[in-house]
């Protein structure tokens, strides 16, 4: 049996306050825990914590759960929560902030494909300036679920047949300068 208790020493309320300082997260503390975000979210039924509970976790400083939950990686960025929130909290932006924090701390759920996709996408665009959907799907499947190639075959073939998937990678002329802009800023 697992004990269900949270000790206050595990909490880092100051961490929550840091999150609230990020662009788009400023109304975090206005949450009245009404659950509109969860109710309107098309993905909430697959989440381990509903978006409302994630907000509560951040506010109370339970950063481990907030960062390692599946919720943030199930957010499809449909902005329904943000536009419906009665307190005008940009829940989508808060999810983005948690994703970044989770990647930075390397605490996202392993082998969960969404963060892998995000990372591969990031690399591709940085390299070429554009995304290659073909290459992206290839890399993603390779890294998370090699057997997935079999199940995806039908869709892949359909897309190929209708000329909608091309292995060609487009690269922008000014890729070098773009890469420079995307380089993380030097640590002072």
């Amino acid at each position: 049996m697992e004990r269900q208790i949270r000790y206050q020493r595990e909490a880092r309320p100051a961490w929550g306050a840091e999150i609230a300082k990020l662009p788009g997260c400023e109304r975090l503390y206005s949450c009245i825990q009404c659950g509109t975000c969860s109710g309107t979210c098309p993905m909430s039924l697959y989440m381990d914590y509903t978006p409302r509970r994630v907000i509560a976790l951040i506010r109370e400083g339970f950063y481990k759960d907030a960062l390692s939950c599946r919720t943030i990686w199930l957010c499809a960025s449909c902005y329904s929560c943000s536009s419906r929130c009665p307190q005008d909290i940009k829940v989508t932006d808060i999810m983005y902030a948690l994703k970044r924090e989770a990647i930075k701390r390397k605490v996202y759920p392993s082998r969960f494909p969404t963060p892998v996709l995000a990372r591969e996408f990031y690399r591709l665009v940085k390299m070429f300036g554009r995304n290659s959907e073909f290459l992206l799907v290839f890399l993603l499947t390779l890294k998370t679920n090699p057997l997935g190639f079999l199940t995806m075959a039908r869709t892949g073939i359909a897309l190929l047949l209708t000329g909608r998937l091309s292995p060609k990678v487009e690269m922008i002329r000014d890729a070098a300068r773009l890469r420079k802009a995307l380089e993380p800023k030097e640590v002072a």
């Binding site: 983005y96 990647i103 990372r119």
Partner: peptide, 10 residues
């Protein structure tokens, strides 16, 4: 949407 989840500035 993916970039926002990795690096906001980028």
């Amino acid at each position: 949407t993916s970039y926002m989840g990795i690096d906001e500035e980028a």
